Structure formats: structure tokens, C-alpha cells
Simulated scan of single mutants.
Amino acid sequence: MTRDVVRARRDTQFKEIARLLTESGVTAVPVVDDLDRPMGVVSEADLLRKCADQADPTGLAPVPHREAWERAKAEGARAEELMSAPAVCAREDWNVVEAVRLMEAQQVKRLPVVDEADRLLGIVSRGDLLRIFLRRDDAIRDEITADVLRGTLGLAPWEVTVDVHDGRVELGGTVGSEGLIPVVERLCRSVDGVVEVSARLTRRTGDALPEPGAG
């Protein structure tokens, strides 16, 4: 997330919001209350609604039909009147999958990120989430090996091999049961930066495990 968040207060005026958007190079700002808790979001589209609601000077284009709430927003002059509310927020400990699913479900392009007291910590955009796919292959491989295979699943380093190329993960080796194979794949897919997972894993037969470096 971006931590240095440009924000508006509930009484921030229309022109001040337009200035914030223009000078900061952003397309929307969260609106916060006196405790810095997000109330809603004001976007360029919210501001442009006022312009679109005006009569065409040439008289050629009719004023578009608006629902009552749309007319109220178009006539608004302060942030709390212009914003889309309530604010759709993410928690700071969410993973990328949770954030993306909420964005898709709510059809929003950005999420204010809040702490346990619902105070604004930052904001995450679609671009921020896409940036994880620029993660280096060696960082992805190290996380899968150390955190997923060894830490979570307790697999020995010689049981499963991990190769990563352009975010595509290739797994090879053996595991204790066939039921563990889809678990390994699912956990690897959840690692930031992974594009796809190809698993050539088989169930291990016999009780003895090869010793490290054994031929």
C-alpha cells in the first residue's frame, strides 16, 4: 500500500478536492472523519458529475436523467456530499488475494487500508497489486522453500525441488500422500508474485527417505 495518503475531511470544499487530485496526481481521495476513519471516497467521476449535470450551453444535449441520490451528489459542494459511501476498506494484514476479491466484488479501483480501530493507514490500488508480479524469481523460490515447504508443510529440502522462471513455479519430487499434492500447489499459488504452478509430484513409496546428497 501507499502510506503517504492524500485525504479529504468531510467539510473539504469541491475546489479544494479538485486541487488535491490535480496536484497529487491521483484520481480519488478517501474522506475521513475527525478520528481519521474513512467515511467514503471522492473520485474524479464524482466531481465530473457536477459538470455533466449542467445544461448544455448550445441546448443540443439534454440534461441526463438522475436518481435522487445522484442529483444530490451532483449538487453537493463538500466532500461528505460528493463522496461514494460507505468506504470499502481492507485490513493491513490481508493478503493480495483478499484485496483483489473485495475490489472485484465491490467494483472499486482502490481500497483504503485501516488498522484495528478503523483508522486510515494507507491506500492500495490495482496498480499496487499488479506490482507484486514484478517480484524476483529467487525471492519467490526462497519463500516457497522456506515458508511453504519447510515451515508450513514440514517437508525436507531434498523431498521437493523448486524452480521459478518469470513467476512460473515448477515443483518436482515426492510427498507422503497424494492428498498432499493439491495442498502444496494451492499454498504455492498463494505466494506473492506467482503466475502459475506446475507440479510434477508423486506419492512417496516406502518408509525410508534418501539422505541429503545421496546418489
Rank of each mutant, 00 (worst) to 15 (best):
H165C: 14
R135C: 10
S177L: 12
G151W: 04
V169M: 04
G176Y: 10
G151M: 02
D118T: 01
A139K: 08
V124T: 12
A156R: 13
G154M: 00
I144Q: 02
S177W: 14
P157H: 05
T152N: 12
L130H: 05
V164K: 05
G176L: 08
G122Y: 00
S177Y: 13
L129Q: 08
V124M: 04
G122A: 04
T161F: 12
T161V: 06
I140P: 06
L130T: 12
W158P: 00
A146S: 12
D118Y: 11
H165G: 06
L153H: 04
D115C: 13
V114S: 10
G122H: 09
D137C: 03
V162H: 02
G154P: 00
T152P: 00
D166H: 13
L120P: 00
I123H: 06
D163T: 14
L120I: 05
V160L: 01
D142M: 08
D118V: 07
T145E: 14
G122E: 03
V160I: 11
D115H: 09
V162G: 02
I144V: 06
D137W: 04
V124R: 02
L121H: 08
V169R: 05
W158M: 09
D115K: 12
G173M: 01
E116G: 15
D147K: 13
L120K: 01
E143Y: 03
A139N: 13
G127W: 13
D142V: 08
R136D: 15
G151Y: 04
L130D: 07
D128R: 03
E170G: 01
